[in-house]
Write a protein that binds this DNA or RNA. Sequence first.
DNA 1: AATGAGGGATGACAAATGTCATCGGGGGGC
DNA 2: GCCCCCCGATGACATTTGTCATCCCTCATT
Lengths: 203, 203
Amino acid sequence: MSIRLVIADDQALVRGALAALLGLEQDIEVVAELGDGTGVAAAVVEHSADVAMLDVEMPGLDGISAAAAVRRAAPSCRVLMVTTFGRPGYLKRAMQAGASGFVVKDTPARQLAEAVRRVHQGLRVVDPVLAAESLTAGDSPLTEREGEVLKAASDGGTVADIAKSTMLSEGTVRNYLSAAMAKTGGRTRAEAVRIAEDNGWLL
Amino acid sequence: MSIRLVIADDQALVRGALAALLGLEQDIEVVAELGDGTGVAAAVVEHSADVAMLDVEMPGLDGISAAAAVRRAAPSCRVLMVTTFGRPGYLKRAMQAGASGFVVKDTPARQLAEAVRRVHQGLRVVDPVLAAESLTAGDSPLTEREGEVLKAASDGGTVADIAKSTMLSEGTVRNYLSAAMAKTGGRTRAEAVRIAEDNGWLL
DNA sequence: AATGAGGGATGACAAATGTCATCGGGGGGC
DNA sequence: GCCCCCCGATGACATTTGTCATCCCTCATT
């Protein structure tokens, strides 16, 4: 009896290619392919899937939230996250959301099927390098609002823009940015944004 | 007689998956897989490949430069660029570098093999949406130095940092940044960076 | 009841940034 | 020769940021 797999990735080419790669395995059957996170939980239920392979970065519902939705809708379905960026914060948050595995996209292709099997058996699969980084990196030091403001700042607008989009006073925005810079260690607003992004503290 | 194909993409998973996907086609044979751009031209020559499929974003030698190298080393080998981001500037630069096709990673998977065949036959394959954008977007308005300075600014450092890394005076840096902001239409240094990146004017 | 942390705001001040005029040198085009 | 554009720099100036102290309110902890 083969493993019933659902794949969600926003890049159609990658999605299709992964399906082709895993479809070559005798014990794996790809039962659904999705382009965003919104329909994943429903698809898992509909096809009574055993494993869901989710990209973290997706339009609509992001992979982490989708993972949580899958766990809620079908607790017996395991979740394997696949991501482009090895952001330490992503790993931690994915695990908290109930994922069983976390793989970055530059791991060798042959290990992927093995990861799916391991996850299906109830084992955990985690990139060891990333796991180590995740431990050193720690949780986000940013408070919720600080994160929101920093995210609002991430497209390069002025303080006035950020204030408008967050419904805050300009002074307050500057205070939060200042706090975020202090906590991230960035010497500039832009640097703070980059550091927070690299660590997976935004989103 | 099958099409001899070389694949270069920095994400091993994607690379392997693409190879698996295209390997399913009877008329395509994947003769080499590379993780960066440096060895592509040599691999093409060694395996006397017919088509090279290159990612634009790669460590070491980027895809555009690699395309030029392939054209120089083996003029009979066609180049098909595959990229995550549909930056208008990339398309133009890829074509100037001698690429025959340009595909974004969220085109349907089944069209990929067809694109490889078309390119092999000497036809050009270009995403029509991207082609239109490329025409409206136009060339980079930035001068060479402006681009360099803007790129140096893209990791969020201060003017002093940029001045140090570019060996320019701080005043000069600010002048270039000011010019870059005017030309991109950005109201902030960070915004100018974002706009330039989105258009494929950096790199 | 007291404490502390976070949300939200104001005002003041120093430093960084963005703008502009101006200068000189070098090259390409008419 | 002249004009225009790019490179590189300087100095002055207005704005924007970043920093800090201080205030009030709420909620959870002790």
